[in-house]
Design a binder for these strands. Structure first.
Lengths: 111, 111
DNA sequence: TATAAGCGCAAGTATTTGCTTGCGCAAGAA
DNA sequence: TTCTTGCGCAAGCAAATACTTGCGCTTATA
């Protein structure tokens, strides 16, 4: 089964994050991007393909050039998730103690 | 070479994100967490290991139980990156046109 | 028109993942 | 003391990654 990549996976790779940073500041074609990395053009091309797949990049073709632009709206998903997690995150050291106390109480009740 | 995992990789996996959500709301031991998923306890245990490795989870041992607590401060890194990227992100359709115009101008100059 | 430049498409490979299964140890319960 | 939990360790595996190399199709350029 071909796993559809999501935004989380897209930004999990440091190279991809670097590509995003690069393009966010200045849209440019594939070769220009590839030149800034130590890997082959093809490797970068694949990363770009993934980023396009998740909608973090848009490509516009002009003649033989394919210009890549950033499209960071999708990153909302990530930020939202983090914020949600934190919202529900009651500082644990309190929660845990409370939880343990509850369990303890229940057990004492059984005895 | 053993790749050291970072926070981005940690949250790239949906199961791990679910574990974080779970623990954020209520710290609990490994088995309790594992019960909530369809995979084996061991699989969950491995995920927890990874999360601990990146500091997103803390484990406290009480007798034979190992309670896991969330520790979401590390997620700052992700949010910060997203925000930074966006800060530098001038809406591309403008930037690209501008860029293309510059190139065009240079080339016309050469002719 | 002959070249060169910009890219994508495989095909092949070395790692890295995410899981499973089986084993064994230590801490409570009976 | 014996049985039952809660867990980690380790070996084995299939699938997913990240790359590389070589090929070939278009578009510009000389």
């Amino acid at each position: 089964m071909k796993a559809r990549r999501d935004v989380y996976q897209a930004i999990a790779d440091p190279t991809r994050r670097a590509i995003i940073n690069l393009i966010a500041g200045q849209p440019q074609n594939v070769n220009s991007i590839a030149e800034k990395f130590d890997t082959s053009r093809q490797a970068i091309s694949l990363h770009i393909g993934i980023l396009v797949e998740c909608g973090l990049i848009t490509v516009k073709q002009y003649g033989r050039d394919r210009f890549c632009e950033a499209k960071l709206d999708q990153l909302d998903e990530v930020v939202t998730w983090v914020e949600q997690s934190r919202k529900h995150w009651v500082r644990s050291f309190e929660k845990l103690d409370q939880y343990l106390t509850e369990i303890k109480t229940k057990e004492d009740g059984k005895k």
